[in-house]
Amino acid sequence: MKLLAWGVPMVVAVSLSGCADPAQVRAENRAADRQRCADYGYQEGTDAFATCMERSDEKREYAEQRAEDRKARIRELALKRSGDERYPICSAATPNVELDVEGFWYAEGCRAR
C-alpha cells in the first residue's frame, strides 16, 4: 500500500512539472514530503525525519529519471520506425504524443516520419 501512496503523487508531480513553475513544484513536493514523513510518525528535526525527507527526494528523482528514460526509448523507437508503413505516423492527435526539438512528433506505437 505504501508503494501506491508514493507512486501516484510522484506520477502526478512528474506529469505536471512541465506545466508549472519549477520552484513552485519543488515547494509543493517538499510540503507533501513533510506531511508524509509526519504521517509516518517522524518528528521534524530528528534524524529519522531527515532520512525520510532524503528518501522522498531520492524516490522522486528516480521516478523522474525513469520517466525521462522512457520518453527517450519511445522517441528512439519512433525514429527507428520512420518509413515503416506498418505504423501510423505520429501526429499532434496521437495520444500521449511529445514534440521533439527537431520538430517531429513521437509516441508509443507510431513512427516519427
Rank of each mutant, 00 (worst) to 15 (best):
Y87M: 04
L77E: 09
G45H: 06
D69E: 15
G7W: 08
V8P: 03
C19E: 12
Y42N: 07
A63Y: 00
A31I: 08
R55L: 12
E61Q: 11
D33F: 06
R60S: 00
A5C: 11
A27Y: 06
K2W: 08
W105K: 01
A92E: 14
K71L: 13
T46C: 05
A92D: 12
R81E: 02
R86G: 07
L99Q: 10
Y106T: 00
R86I: 03
Y106V: 00
R70H: 11
E28Y: 02
I89A: 04
G83L: 07
V12D: 07
A112D: 00
I89L: 06
A63C: 07
E76A: 15
F104S: 05
Q24H: 14
S56D: 05
E54Y: 11
E28D: 13
Y40A: 14
E98H: 13
D33S: 14
S15Y: 12
D33C: 05
A32G: 10
E68H: 10
E54G: 14
E102R: 10
A27K: 11
A107V: 01
D21A: 11
R30S: 08
C37N: 02
E68M: 10
A38N: 14
C19I: 13
A67T: 02
R73Y: 05
R86K: 13
V14S: 03
T51R: 14
E64K: 05
C110G: 02
S17K: 06
R111H: 02
A48T: 07
M10N: 02
T51I: 14
L79G: 02
L16M: 14
P95R: 06
D47P: 03
I74N: 01
D39P: 02
D84C: 06
C52N: 05
R81F: 04
V14Q: 03
C19S: 15
Q65Y: 08
L4H: 10
Y106I: 01
L99D: 09
A72E: 14
R60H: 06
W105I: 01
S17T: 10
V11N: 06
V101E: 15
A20T: 12
D69N: 12
V101N: 15
M10V: 05
V101T: 15
G45D: 08
A112W: 00
G45N: 08
A112P: 00
E58N: 15
E85S: 11
A63Q: 02
Q35E: 15
W6K: 01
S56G: 15
G45I: 06
P9F: 03
C110A: 04
A5Y: 11
F49H: 03
G103K: 11
E64M: 07
D69A: 12
K71S: 08
E98I: 05
S91Q: 10
L4P: 01
S15L: 15
R60D: 01
R75C: 04
L16C: 14
D47Q: 14
D47L: 12
E58G: 12
E58S: 15
A50K: 13
D84L: 04
M1L: 13
A72G: 07
A48L: 11
K2A: 13
R70W: 06
G18I: 07
M53F: 03
E61W: 04
E64V: 07
S56P: 00
R30T: 09
C19V: 14
E76M: 11
N29K: 08
E64H: 06
